[in-house]
């Protein structure tokens, strides 16, 4: 059972990394951003290529992979997402889904369709009281907790963070003070994309790497965002960990049902708290 819990926290942590960006894009700009799968998957494939280059230096390869995604996300925001502000939700969905599909094909073209095997970069186990746990998974959970604390600090104390919190609630109100919301949004967008890439990079060694990996996890992340409340950052954290746990526990007894269960929970939440758009 302890294994299941650690597994659940790991999945939850990964979902959290990816869901933050989605939640902010939706909360601030009312854009459903399917292109988020692309930044996530790109981060992973960068890691694949860089990992071969920096053999044995996982941390360096992972950091570069995340950084490389930032300018790419900047271009996505500038050239496409920015044109979607104020458009109807289904338009944002269609346009960003197109980006995701183009991205998948580009990845297939560059890296091929075959899965890449990556191995646990730490490969050590921690034994406490007869329990053996992979250290890597514990590290992932620790990073997620640090990130949560860091983001709380960022959104409460920094001026950019405060602008984002204010804009999530009342975008026009921030604009009418003379603040160019789009500019701050593009910072936040890059931050969210980098975090998605980080999630991908951390998750890749313990899952499988293939061009479609972003699409399936993104659906789970939408569930996280819906359950946690769109634009609600603390809610996103709690809901990511809770849904990760639900997946892990379900998988223990009924392995095919893990993802289904997430959407059942989402549906139940939607019944009691419909989204107001």
């Amino acid at each position: 059972m302890i294994h299941t819990i650690v597994y659940g926290f790991t999945i939850g942590a990964i979902l959290y990394f990816i869901a933050i960006g989605l939640s902010l894009t939706f909360g601030m700009m009312r854009v459903i951003n399917f292109a988020h799968t692309l930044t996530y998957t790109l981060g992973v494939y960068m890691l694949v290529s860089l990992g071969a280059l920096f053999k044995g230096y996982f941390v360096i390869a992972a950091m570069i992979a995340v950084v490389v995604v930032i300018p790419i996300s900047y271009l996505i925001e500038r050239c496409i997402i920015r044109r979607l502000y104020g458009e109807s939700l289904d338009h944002t969905f269609i346009a960003t889904f197109a980006i995701a599909l183009i991205g998948v094909d580009t990845i297939k073209w560059i890296w091929g369709v075959l899965p890449y095997p990556l191995s646990d970069p730490i490969g050590e186990y921690l034994t406490i009281g007869g329990l053996t746990l992979p250290i890597y998974r514990i590290v992932i959970v620790m990073i997620a907790i640090l990130l949560f604390i860091g983001l709380e600090f960022f959104f409460r104390k920094s001026i950019v963070g405060k602008i984002v919190v204010a804009a999530l609630e009342d975008r026009d109100g921030v604009g009418c003070l003379g603040i160019d919301v789009d500019h701050y949004f593009s910072i936040v967008f890059m931050m969210g994309s980098a975090l998605a890439a980080l999630g991908g990079v951390l998750y890749a060694p313990i899952s499988s790497v293939h061009p479609y990996m972003g699409l399936s996890i993104l659906l789970l992340c939408f569930a996280v965002v819906i359950v946690g409340g769109m634009g609600n950052l603390r809610g996103t954290f709690v809901s990511a960990l809770a849904l990760g746990m639900i997946m892990a526990v379900t998988a223990r007894y009924w392995s095919q049902g893990a993802e289904t269960m997430v959407f059942i929970v989402m549906a139940i939440v939607l019944i009691f708290r419909p989204i107001d758009i």
Binding site: K162, A166, D172, L177, G178
Partner: peptide, 26 residues
Amino acid sequence: RYVAQDKKVFSHLTVRDNIELAAYAA
């Protein structure tokens, strides 16, 4: 300066932070 009808302050921020955003913008 437009002061909207709905009395919508930035409710998750403190009063000081509300003023800080205005100061920052100006």
